[in-house]
Write a protein that binds this DNA or RNA. Sequence first.
DNA 1: TTTCGGTCGCAACTCGTTTTGCAAAATGCG
DNA 2: CGCATTTTGCAAAACGAGTTGCGACCGAAA
Lengths: 348, 348
Amino acid sequence: MRGSLGYCEFVTDTPSKPWTMQQIAAAAGVSVTTVSHTLSGKRPVNPATAERIQKLIAEFEYVPDSGAQRLKSGRSGMIGLAVPDISHWYFGRIARGVEEVADELDYGLIICSTSNSDPRREKRYFNLLRTRSIEGLIYTASREISASDELVRVSGSSPIVFADERVDALPDVPSVTSSNFVGAQVLGRHLRDLGHTRAVIIAGFAGLHSTIERTKAIKESFPNALTLHGDFELKSGYDLVSDLLAHEVRFTALFGCNDYMAIGAMTRLREAGLRVPEDVSVVGFDDVDMAAIVTPGLTTVRQDMAEIGRRSAHLLIAGLHAGGFDAVESESLPTELILRGSTGPAPQ
Amino acid sequence: MRGSLGYCEFVTDTPSKPWTMQQIAAAAGVSVTTVSHTLSGKRPVNPATAERIQKLIAEFEYVPDSGAQRLKSGRSGMIGLAVPDISHWYFGRIARGVEEVADELDYGLIICSTSNSDPRREKRYFNLLRTRSIEGLIYTASREISASDELVRVSGSSPIVFADERVDALPDVPSVTSSNFVGAQVLGRHLRDLGHTRAVIIAGFAGLHSTIERTKAIKESFPNALTLHGDFELKSGYDLVSDLLAHEVRFTALFGCNDYMAIGAMTRLREAGLRVPEDVSVVGFDDVDMAAIVTPGLTTVRQDMAEIGRRSAHLLIAGLHAGGFDAVESESLPTELILRGSTGPAPQ
DNA sequence: TTTCGGTCGCAACTCGTTTTGCAAAATGCG
DNA sequence: CGCATTTTGCAAAACGAGTTGCGACCGAAA
């Protein structure tokens, strides 16, 4: 059949319906119980019959129907990961880490882009929890915590872990984040040590925990730093620097709340004839792959996103097995200063 | 309970077990049939009772158990997407497109990284098809088509669509790809028109359809182009150029089979004191976001990855509904030449 | 009042697997 | 050889929703 022109059925050599345990049992001349026990090993089965059954299973390529197993066990064996946009490098790394652990611990993973907190989508994904399609959710907040009503309600009754971004309004939900404060503190001191005094901060969304922490840390070194808010995208760094230049704001150090905004800013600075780092030092946060490629290389703070994903998954699945979380289980991961060419001594 | 120290159960105000249709029916004083019909509308229900039931459903936040629905209907409402590595920009974009359409057409999406064709993982994901956890699979090939035995068998009996990479050994499986040949052809002509005569190709994995097509197209303009094979990563472009330099190979044009390798190559060229584009013109393929950021900007061919994802999803789901594919449904999407600063006239 | 067509609700079975109580067979030991 | 164990297998009841045949009830027409 295959290879002929026109319409092509899925099924050719294999039977259209998959085999049921019933049929295997019939073929082996035993009852379903025996087949089931052969597979699960929850009761001893005569080695001879067991072998005969195994052979038939292999021959028929029988696989138990996951729907039926789910119904019976009440467990779906799946967890969910909600990210603002899976196509971002940043969230892709988290996803990779989560997937790694989920796979290792025999859980399936459903990844959901919330399209930057599109409420309709978010509701759908929370529904995955309600319908028991997933047993738990790793939630990566994007902007401010929207849909909070929904989130609060869901977080009360279902296993949720926050990854990357803690939500202050929900202190009882475990979270895995980077040490935003310490990371930014190191950056601040680095630039202060280089003699800079006038700094500008291109911060992220105002409501985010990470933004707040990083800004606070930098202000420790630069109490008067001018703070603008962007949306974490390249363009936003670019545009905000345009604004600064239009107002002839004077500064020698620029903090991007993430690398993309820092790189966008750097691009705009160079377009305006300013040299990096001779005239302005620029730093970012994250250490995305692009940070090493741009010229000059971007001084930044490395976050281990994959590790955040891994730890979140471990936390969630541990909670699943235990039936609850210890309230104190939140973790914050160390960061690392990566020095590159975008920072230098303050100009005279 | 919440907020107290130590152990914290998931369930506080909400009952530990979700409501069943049974319980709703009992509360409303009717039978499950009535509740079911109220929801599905497959039979008329007294408006008064219907309203009472609806109210109870809303109050209890009842949602039908997806496992039970699956078992009964035989449909899981999920499709799978297998990509080599979800943390890559490239595959993230595809995933985004797939997700968009899946969401729109009311399918759930399970994303699986195959870790560059780790056979163990791949087997697991094919098993999702067998266990009916997913109804169909969008498969994005990574290196050569490994696990072909398994893939051939699965593709014969289950709905599969190839995205991004066609598999020549399985011509009957529908695919959605970019027009690799035409895209590369345009690049080749562009550089030939600039007067280049000595070109080097940094190709991808030798077994991939895209690599073959692109190489063939470039050789149309540069029949004697020296062809090396990399692994699509930055480092690989960098290292291969090191090799070229070590052998003092002379060339004025360099084709990267993807942007990352092209950018890696560009980096190495500059480190060797060669100017881009004055001494060597460099082109890539894909138009990743980084291509616009590096200096000089990378001339490349844009692929619409998200669209590839969208079309694949449409194709798969259409096939699911129809119960089979038309053999001729494969699509190839147009590409677009993006001119930036990395190409210029050949040096004298 | 009877009958008819239609509306609506109930009990009972189905999906495929897991798990139980129970009985039959096989084994051990005195 | 008989009794007490262990093995080993079967039938039946779950899990939660969807579906069907059937009968109860309604109002309206004869």
